[in-house]
Design a protein around this nucleic acid. Structure first.
Length: 437
RNA sequence: GCUGAAUUAGCUCAGUUGGUUAGAGCACCUGACUGUUAAUCAGGGUGUCACAGGUUCGAGUCCUGUAUUCAGCGCCA
């Protein structure tokens, strides 16, 4: 190919190059041919569209490539003219004049017919090449950027907590154990305690990173490794934190609606159905009211029980938007939360339940600020105060009211893209029995 | 961890009451077709029936155990 004057472009930019000769690096996703015309379905990672070859306009060698030699996922350069054409799904196509093969592809395992989830997860490194995973990764990227935008624009500083830790932030769940030279160490299951230190240093902070739970959870709502956003705000009580939470979630949803309409469509989520979620405030009910609602609905729960997924779904179904459940019993929430001012049996806390059965996407609370109360809570939780000495220090030197929350990225993505499992919202899911690829 | 289901060709699956040589579609190869959209049409053969025992003249099919996967529950975000 001696094509010095031809511009190299991406498929996504094809509409700006109509009737121009261009060069594009592509992979083959599928092909069809007749005796004198061939259609190559192409992708380059920016979009999918098709190339058309007419037998009487290319050399016999090139037509033979298109008809026979090129296999699914072969990589090659195409040179040709961009045409607008309503018969093509993308609206544009390239009339191919020449093909320069880069690499062949033999026996590509993923076909264009249906596959089972186990096979697809075994081939996740290749499955990412297809349209639905690509749409999901683009939405995931947009949500991650929206996080940085939102907190950056609201005076937050990103503070990165350690992933290797010597103590268990919440003490209750199973942690991944490892060695830190001679000491025991654990993979972080939450950055929250460190974010509290950050908030007392920098006022409003947040973290975004992976966390690890060695729980034998085997459900559509759990991953072993997942990504969490954990903001923490000094001089802030819970009510103001709730206002930030709903404004933040509404912002994320709005950005996806604005910038990912094509990706939502690929994943089967009508953007119109997301619009109500951009309207704040979100409803708030107390844990007490939630129990009453559940009991009236015939569910077998008592005050003091934690909600399982049937309960969460039942509650969420009563509202057309995400709903905050306020002030849970102390017995089912972690030790660091602040006690209610007029009741000694509940914390000042809230979970945000997503609609449509997607469960808890945010858990948050005001934090305990009194040294002695927190010390007692550490002991009551069966934890060693020595391990939490630094955390207790935060209540010793200028303790202030502060509140924070954590949003599970994959839970959020699963909800706004209507996935039936978190595993499709992360590039390489770590699950109970899946560490590969 | 509990409950239920599944495991047959590279993939997705069928396989009747236990009975000859194990079935289809897709993928792959050959040929036809100038607008295909999971193209269509004709032809071409895939195999440790998850593994280990057992019952039987005979087991993909029935029994026992094991492994793995899926779905739901519990725990949680």
């Amino acid at each position: 190919m001696e094509e010095s004057g031809v511009q190299t472009i991406n498929i996504i930019d094809a509409p700006h190059h109509v009737n121009e000769r261009v060069k594009i690096g592509v992979w083959l996703t599928d092909k069809r041919s007749s005796g004198k015309i061939a259609f190559l379905q192409l992708r380059d990672g920016t979009a999918f569209f098709q190339g058309v070859l007419l037998k009487n306009k290319v050399t016999p060698e090139v037509f033979e490539l298109a008809k026979h030699e090129l296999r699914q996922e072969a990589s090659f350069w195409v040179i040709g003219e961009i045409h607008e054409d309503t018969r093509s799904k993308f609206g544009y196509e390239i009339q191919i004049e020449d093909i320069e093969v880069i690499d062949a592809s033999e026996d590509y395992p993923i076909g264009n017919k249906e596959h089972g989830i186990d096979f697809l997860l075994d081939n996740r490194h290749l499955w990412l090449r297809t349209s639905k995973p690509q749409a999901m990764m683009k939405i995931r990227d947009r949500v991650i950027r929206a996080n940085y935008e939102y907190f950056g624009d609201h005076g937050f500083t990103k503070i990165d907590p350690p992933i290797l830790t010597g103590n268990a932030p919440e003490g209750t769940t199973d942690l991944f154990h490892t060695k830190y030279f001679e000491q025991d160490a654990y993979l972080s299951q939450s950055g929250q305690l460190y974010e509290e230190a950050g908030a007392l240093a920098l006022n409003k902070v947040y973290s975004f990173g992976p966390v690890f739970r060695a729980e034998k959870s085997k459900t559509r709502r759990h991953l072993i490794e997942f990504w969490m956003i954990e903001p923490e705000m000094a001089f802030m009580h819970q009510e103001e934190s709730l206002e930030i939470q709903e404004e933040y979630v509404a912002y994320l949803v709005q950005k996806v609606i604005d910038d990912c309409s094509h990706e939502l469509e690929v994943l089967g989520r009508d953007p119109e159905t997301l619009k109500p979620f951009t309207q704040t405030p979100y409803p708030r009910i107390s844990y007490d009211e939630a129990i009453e609602l559940l009991q009236k609905g015939g569910l077998d729960v008592q005050w003091g029980d934690d909600f399982g997924s049937p309960e969460e779904t039942f509650l969420a179904d009563h509202f057309s938007k995400p709903v905050f459940i306020l002030n849970y019993p102390k017995s089912i929430k972690p030790f660091y939360m602040k006690g209610h001012p007029t009741r000694d049996d509940v914390y000042v806390c809230a979970d945000l339940l997503a609609p449509e059965g997607y469960g808890e996407i945010i858990g948050g609370s005001e934090r305990e600020t009194d040294y002695d109360t927190l010390l007692q809570a550490v002991k009551d939780a069966g934890l060693d105060p020595k391990d939490y000495a630094w955390y207790l220090d935060l209540r010793k030197y200028g303790s202030v009211p502060h509140s924070g929350f954590g949003l599970g990225l994959e839970r959020f993505l699963s909800w706004i893209t209507l996935q039936d499992h978190l595993r499709t919202t992360i590039p390489f899911p770590r699950m109970l029995n899946r560490l590969y690829p």
